[in-house]
Amino acid sequence: MKNRFRFIPLAAVVLTAGCVSMPSGPSVLVLPGTGASFNEFRADESACRQYAYEYIGGRSAGQAAADAGVRSAVVGTAIGAAVGAAVDGGRGAGVGAGTGLLIGSASGAGAVEVSGYEAQRRYDHAYVQCMYASGHRVPVSGRYSPGRADRYRSTPPPPPAGTPPPPPPGVR
């Protein structure tokens, strides 16, 4: 009876890892550069996808996410087995390993999401840099923040109303 339920935690890890769906390419918009033909754009786009893929270590964002989840489950299992063995010997090691697998899998869900999105972000940055360097256009949001722009003005702001004027030069 015990052997029948032995692989339930592993099945839970496999099923939850399948819930993560990361894009397999760039998630940003890039437009052909001025005067570039569509075939030139496609060739550059293919080269930049390869560059970005190599930039993040030759793994897709989905692969990075799955690896993070598996690592968390394995580490949790090993720590649980070690603690269980220290507390109750051989029987405790089995219970600790099962408990560690469950806790490691649960914590791995967060690691999966963070790892996948971080890999996608780095991929997108490398892809955009490559496409921009190849002469293509990258649309960006044009938000204007007057508070930030005021810090970089070359002329000082006017004095508040009611302030006496400064003395003329050379008079103390």
Rank of each mutant, 00 (worst) to 15 (best):
R6G: 01
F7D: 02
F7R: 01
L10Q: 06
G18S: 09
V20H: 07
S21P: 00
S21Q: 14
P23Y: 08
S27H: 09
S27I: 02
S27E: 14
V28E: 09
S37V: 00
F38A: 13
E40V: 01
F41D: 02
E45W: 06
E45G: 03
Q50C: 00
Y55E: 10
Y55F: 14
I56T: 05
R59T: 01
S60R: 04
G62W: 00
G62T: 02
Q63L: 05
R71S: 13
R71A: 14
R71E: 12
A73C: 06
G80I: 04
A81F: 12
V83T: 07
V83S: 00
V87D: 07
G89S: 07
R91K: 15
G94M: 04
A97G: 05
L102K: 07
I103R: 05
G108S: 10
A109R: 13
G110N: 13
E113K: 11
S115G: 15
Y117W: 15
Y123S: 00
D124I: 02
D124R: 04
Q129K: 10
C130T: 08
C130D: 08
S134G: 08
G142R: 14
P146G: 07
P146K: 09
R148C: 04
A149F: 11
Y152M: 09
Y152S: 12
R153N: 10
P157I: 03
P158Y: 07
T163P: 00
T163H: 10
P165L: 14
P168C: 05
V171Q: 14
